[in-house]
Simulated assay, not measured.
Amino acid sequence: MPLSPLVRFGTSTWTYEGWQGQVYFKKYSKTTFARECLGEYCQYLSNGEPCFRTVGNDSTFYRPPTPNQLRHYLNQIPEDFEMCFKVWEELTIPQFARQGRYGAKAGQPNPRFLDAKLFNELVLTPYREAKFEPHTGPFLFEFQRHGMSRDEFCSRLDTFFSQLPKDFRYAVEIRNAGLLGPDYRKVLENHGVAHVYNHWSYMPSLREQHERMEQKFTAPFTVLRLLTPLKMSYEAAKKRAEPYAKIVEELPDMRRDTVELLKNAVGDKRQAYVLVNNRSEGNAPLTIQALWSALQDAPL
């Protein structure tokens, strides 16, 4: 049974050389692999159909893309492919962590936090210049754990999204479980912004997140990111899953909750983006194939 066209599966990133012999069969040099393998990624099939119709782009978390980068992607992706870009961290960090990579800003408040003008000028402009809009999936705003209260965070989100253009789609991923609830849901719903259901170390299960969101989606689309096992640190998940060549341990609750959310979303005629990380079960393409099979057993 073909998968509903409303569901798009992809991996958290595509530039993983360990998928040679599984996803990648062309010969690439070390210097060209990351730049040239996206086209082959898009050609990967499952049951004779394109398996990946989306992908995450984590690199844009560290700097916005240039128009030339986006044009380079355009030259490799098919017509129906969409890429989900993380938003530049300069806009999503209320206070910089005490880490060396932040230099003099380490430990300081961030004056650019949720700066709508900056987002419009520095983040969105390259997509318009490159004419990338038809291939742009939801922008992913990843908020690391922080000390802001629910009221302050929701107020800042509300102000920010009220200033953004409506011709792009936006999704919010939080790492503070205490923010989940009616106030947060209503802000997202008022602006047509999706909550990112993230299967991540210290968040509740996907099912519990949906319950805390009053079992309501907040946008005409939804996003799921299957990142790490619950109650397991990033470092432990990485060590457990390396070298990412096989399923090291199935996560049946994660799979069940994913299928249920997808059934609910498609039943509501909503698009659904599912981005899977190697660190969840050990090998993202195999996890996606298992989810695909589970959907066929419980048709949408």
Rank of each mutant, 00 (worst) to 15 (best):
F25T: 09
K26Q: 14
K26S: 14
K26F: 00
K27F: 00
K27I: 00
Y28A: 07
Y28G: 03
S29M: 00
S29I: 00
S29G: 15
S29P: 01
K30N: 13
K30D: 13
K30E: 13
K30T: 07
K30P: 06
K30C: 01
K30H: 11
T31D: 13
T32R: 10
T32K: 07
T32L: 11
T32Y: 01
F33G: 06
F33P: 04
F33T: 04
F33K: 03
A34P: 00
A34K: 12
A34T: 11
E36C: 11
E36Y: 07
E36N: 14
E36S: 14
C37P: 00
C37N: 13
C37H: 03
L38E: 05
L38C: 09
L38Q: 07
G39Q: 12
G39N: 11
E40M: 09
E40H: 06
Y41G: 04
Y41T: 02
Q43E: 15
Q43H: 12
Y44F: 15
Y44C: 09
L45H: 11
L45C: 10
S46V: 08
S46P: 01
S46G: 02
S46H: 15
S46N: 14
N47E: 15
N47W: 09
N47V: 01
N47Y: 12
G48R: 10
G48P: 06
E49V: 08
E49L: 12
E49I: 03
E49N: 09
E49G: 05
P50D: 05
C51E: 13
F52C: 05
T54M: 06
T54H: 07
V55Q: 02
V55M: 09
V55N: 10
V55G: 01
V55R: 01
G56E: 06
N57A: 12
D58R: 12
D58E: 14
D58Q: 14
D58H: 11
S59H: 06
S59W: 09
S59T: 08
T60P: 02
T60D: 04
T60I: 07
F61K: 03
Y62D: 07
R63C: 11
R63M: 10
R63L: 10
R63N: 10
P64F: 05
P65W: 04
P65R: 03
T66F: 07
P67N: 09
P67H: 04
P67W: 07
P67G: 03
N68M: 08
N68L: 13
Q69E: 15
L70A: 04
L70I: 08
L70R: 01
R71C: 11
R71T: 09
R71V: 11
H72W: 09
H72E: 14
H72P: 00
H72F: 08
L74F: 06
L74V: 02
L74K: 10
L74D: 00
N75P: 00
N75F: 03
Q76P: 06
Q76G: 04
Q76Y: 05
Q76N: 05
I77H: 01
P78G: 06
P78L: 05
P78N: 03
D80L: 08
E82R: 14
E82D: 03
E82L: 15
E82Q: 15
C84L: 09
C84S: 12
C84A: 11
F85Y: 15
K86W: 05
K86V: 01
V87P: 01
V87N: 02
V87Y: 02
V87H: 02
